[in-house]
Amino acid sequence: MSRQTKIKLENVTKVFYKRGNSVTAIQNISAEIKDGEFVCLIGPSGCGKTTLLKILAGLETPSLGRYSISRDSKEKPLQSMVFQEKGVFPWLTVAENVAFGLKMQKLPRAYVKERTAYFLEKVGLAQFAKRYPKELSGGMKQRVSIARAFANDPEILLMDEPFAALDEQNKYILQEELLNIWMETKKTVLFITHSIDEALMLSDRILLMSAQPGKIAADKTIDLPRPRHVEQIRSDQNVAKQFVEIWKHLQTEVQRSRLQAT
C-alpha cells in the first residue's frame, strides 16, 4: 500500500484567548492521512476534535504549525464538511440544499441538476426533492447533509459527529449507507465521533486523542474486511478486544482531566 499522503498536519496548535485567559485546545498535532483513507478521530469531549476539524475546514486558523491538503485537480473544492445536526438550510428545499455547493462553484445548470438527482437517489431522498427540511426526520436531514458534501466532489470530506443526534436504529442504517457511498467514491474522510462502536464500524484507522491540551495519543489500524455490516462487527472477537482497549484509554483520559480540573 503505497498510497499518497492526502492530509498532512505538522505541529498544529490552537490556543483560544479570551478575557485574559488562554486555553490550549490542541497542542502539537502531527498526523498524516492517506488518499482514500477513512480515519476516525475519537476522544473525550472537550479534547479539541472539533477545533482540529474546523482548522481543516478553513473555519479556524491554527495559532502555530501548518497543514496541507494535496490536490488532485485544480477545479475541485478542497474540502466539504458534514456538520452536526442543523447544518441543512431550512429555507432551501432538499434538492436546493444538495445543490448548494455545486451552485457556489458556478457549475453549469444541467450538470448541477444531474449530479443533485444522482446523489438524492443515492441517499434515497429522490421523492423528497421539493420538500423543505421541516418535513424531514433527523436522519433524513443528515442524509441531505451527506449528499450535499459528496455531490460537491471535494478533495477531502470532513464530518463532525454527523450521527450523534440520531437514534440507534437510524445511526446504524446511516453508517452503512455512508460506507456504501464512500466505497464508491473513495474519498478521503476525516470523521469525528465520541462513539467507539461508530469508529470501529467505519474506519481504516482510529486516531485517539487525549484531553486538555488535545494531543494524539494513539494511532490504531482497523483492518477489518469491507463491506462491513453491523451484525458482523458486533460479533467479531477482535473488535471486542479493540473496543476494550480504546475504552480503557478514554477512561484514563477522562479521569485525568477530571483530576486536573479539581
Binding site: 478553513g58 464538511m81 438550510f89 448548494f100 457556489m104 462553484q105
Partner: peptide, 15 residues
C-alpha cells in the same frame, strides 16, 4: 452554523 456552512462551501458575498 448556517454562516459556517456557507463559508465552508465557498459562498461569495453575493451568494
Amino acid at each position: 452554523i448556517y454562516v459556517d456552512v456557507a463559508k465552508n462551501y465557498g459562498a461569495g458575498s453575493k451568494d
